[in-house]
Structures are given as C-alpha cells and as structure tokens.
C-alpha cells in the first residue's frame, strides 16, 4: 500500500496539471468568480456550460454575492451627487465609491428619505411618493 502511494506521488509531481479537482470544489471556485468570468467560461466545455447555466447555480452565486457586499448610500441635499460606498472594497478599487443615477426622481428633490433596502434595492420616499 505504501509503495503504491509513493509511486503515485512521484507520478503526480512529475506531470503537470494532472490532479483531478472534483466538481463540488470547481463549483466552490466558480461561485467566487464575477459574472463576466462565468460568461466567458461557458465555453470551457459542455459540463461547465450546463453547470453555469443551471438555475440553482445562479441562485447560489447571487446569494453569495449579495451577502458579501455592504454598501452605504448617503443622501445630502446640498451635495452635488449621491454616492454609494462599498466598505469592503480594496482602496484601489474604483467601484468602491460610485455615483448613483437618480434622474428618475423629480428635479432638485430636497426631501429624499430612505424607507428601506433589500439586496441592492433601495426604497426612497420623495415628494410624497415612493421610488425604487
């Protein structure tokens, strides 16, 4: 038994990239990739295409991404723009602080209130109306 193991080890050391990674571990890696990479990796092989297109996988990927980000949205009537800030992003990440486009609101809203938020959606109250 021991001799067999030793032989296997020599073999795996000599040849490169022969180690088999089980599918559940490949899924763990794919879950941590951004959507752009996943769309590209659709054409790696047929099993990856069906895996990445699978609705359970998309849901798990979304759930993971949704729990990993914490953003602060800050409204200040006197500020020229509304920004959303990601506290977990690295310093050099340009998307850490993003300007929000609120063109759908009435012009010059001076009384915007955040009523609630869930999974990236923010419910706003402005001019006695609710906005998403």
């Amino acid at each position: 038994m021991q001799i067999k193991c030793l032989k296997m080890k020599t073999y795996s050391r000599r040849t490169k990239n022969t180690l088999h990674v089980p599918e559940d571990l490949i899924i763990q890696i794919l879950l941590r990739l951004p959507v752009k990479s996943l769309v590209r990796f659709n054409c790696v092989c047929k099993s990856w295409l069906s895996l990445i297109s699978d609705s359970h996988f998309s849901l798990s990927h979304f759930e993971r991404a949704a729990t990993c980000t914490e953003r602060l949205v800050f409204f200040e009537p006197s500020a020229p723009e509304v920004r959303s800030i990601d506290f977990n992003a690295p310093l050099y990440d340009d998307s850490a602080s993003a300007v929000l486009n609120l063109n759908f609101l009435p012009p010059k809203p001076n009384d915007v209130r955040i009523r609630g938020s869930s999974r990236g959606f923010v419910l706003l109250e402005c001019c006695q109306r609710l906005w998403m």
Binding site: N17, T18, L19, H20, V21, I26, F41, C43, V44, C45, K46, W48
Partner: peptide, 11 residues
C-alpha cells in the same frame, strides 16, 4: 482554464 483543470474541450 482548460489547461489548469485538465479539461478536454468537447465543443
């Protein structure tokens, strides 16, 4: 990716 995981392209 194919090389990293030793995957054969079956397309």
């Amino acid at each position: 990716i194919r090389n990293f995981f030793n995957i054969v392209n079956d397309f």
